[in-house]
């Protein structure tokens, strides 16, 4: 380069190049110890921005899964409660058939009526199921007991007790959760939709109980088929819940796949390839060593050495 290199040139160039070697060594060391290629915003701004976007999307997916799990819990509790209700209604059907039989006496019918009254109360308890401190069949009025029963009233005409009227105190609101970027799923079925709107279950049971107490076999007979309608009504709600649950499972599966793809993309941008990083580090170590050794040899020979 220059025709007349002097000592200070050697030292200056040595220091300059040494610093650059050390910087490369430093970068290799950084990558190996942190396991990441991107340690500062300036390492690769475009990649860094992409990595941050991926990280935030992955975070959102994690939250969606959390939402789905929460919803699944709610829906699961609803489903098991309604399964129990179905069982109770089946038992009512057997009791009703017994009561309809000609061979059953009035005394027996009274006992059956009392049994069914108890089942009605049990059914109401299931309708008032709580999950994590919230009533699941109250719509969005989750701190209000969905169904309340008034006191029994005396029917002076027929000389029987009328089971207390059950009224719905909740609302018809659905609670939705965000299952993915553009899908909301309802996590509940409102109590009125399940137990009241199509057919008022408690009312129907009350009618059956009164018929038994009155020995009104004709009415008992017709009420048996209505019981089956009630079972269908509950089954419909169970079906709806089942659909929601499987929909959520499907969404969760897709989210998992999406997340895996993004995580792998993020890793390819951000994570250092360990084998590569370590071999870089070794290479830079050797380079650094060579540079330092060369530096020590600067000015080994000088005219001064040879003067007498």
């Amino acid at each position: 380069m220059s025709m007349r290199p002097v000592e200070s040139t050697w030292y200056r160039d040595f220091i300059y190049n040494l610093n650059r070697t050390k910087t490369r060594y430093d970068d290799a060391l950084s990558q190996t110890t942190s396991g990441k290629k991107l340690n500062h915003l300036s390492d690769n701004p475009a990649d860094m921005a992409y990595v941050l976007t991926l990280r935030s999307k992955i975070g959102q997916i994690d939250q969606f899964e959390k939402n789905i799990n929460s919803a699944s819990g709610f829906l699961g509790a609803s489903e098991s409660a309604l399964n129990q209700v179905q069982n109770l209604l089946s038992s009512v059907v057997s009791l009703a058939e017994q009561g309809a039989s000609e061979s059953t006496g009035a005394q027996e019918r009274n006992i059956i009526a009392d049994n069914i009254d108890q089942v009605r109360d049990e059914l109401m308890n299931y309708a008032n199921t709580e999950f994590m401190g919230n009533y699941i069949f109250a719509g969005s009025a989750t701190d209000t007991v969905p169904f309340v029963k008034a006191a029994d009233t005396w029917d002076a005409v027929n000389n029987i007790w009328i089971p207390g009227v059950v009224t719905y105190q909740g609302n018809s609101d659905t609670i939705n959760i965000q299952a993915d970027f553009s899908t909301t799923v309802a996590t509940n079925v409102p109590g009125d939709q399940v137990f009241v709107n199509q057919n008022d279950i408690f009312d129907r049971l009350s009618i059956l109980i009164q018929a038994l107490r009155r020995d009104d076999t004709a009415t008992i007979g017709t009420q048996i088929s209505s019981m089956n309608e009630l079972i269908d009504q509950i089954s419909e709600s169970v079906g709806t819940i089942g659909n929601k649950t499987s929909h959520l499972t499907q969404i969760k599966g897709m989210l998992e796949k999406f997340k895996t793809a993004m995580e792998s993309k993020m890793s390819s941008l951000e994570d250092a390839n360990m084998a590569e990083a370590i071999s870089n580090l070794s290479r830079e170590e050797v380079a650094l060593q060579a540079a330092l050794q060369a530096g020590a040899r600067i000015q080994r020979f000088s005219l001064m050495n040879y003067l007498e």
Binding site: M1, S2, P5, E7, D13, S302
Partner: peptide
């Protein structure tokens, strides 16, 4: 890098070479 080059160039003209002085 440019500055180092210029400084080396300057040295080749104005720098002291110990061997030369000796």
């Amino acid at each position: 890098s440019m500055l180092t080059y210029l400084q080396d160039k300057r040295d080749s003209i104005s720098g002291v070479s110990l061997d030369e002085e000796t």
